[in-house]
């Protein structure tokens, strides 16, 4: 089993959350548009209810 470093625990409300995948964002884990010029695009996380989301890199 892979261990993921620096897990981040967030409470996200229902709705769409754009998560950074290019690691250039200044507002991680959220996308801030810094991926422009890289081949990466943000990950859309759509929640139908408020959830706890753990993000590990």
């Amino acid at each position: 089993m892979t261990t993921h470093a620096n897990p981040q625990l967030l409470t996200l409300n229902a709705g769409t959350h754009w998560l950074c995948t290019c690691s250039q964002s200044k507002n991680k884990p959220y996308c801030d548009g810094s991926h422009q010029g890289t081949p990466f695009t943000p990950l859309a996380l759509e929640l139908e209810a408020t959830k706890q989301v753990e993000i590990s890199s």
Binding site: H4, L19, A49, T50, K51, Q52, V53, E54, I55, S56
Partner: peptide, 10 residues
């Protein structure tokens, strides 16, 4: 990147 989504504990 790994996402773990859990129900609110409350």
């Amino acid at each position: 990147m790994k996402l773990t989504i859990r129900d609110m504990p409350t």
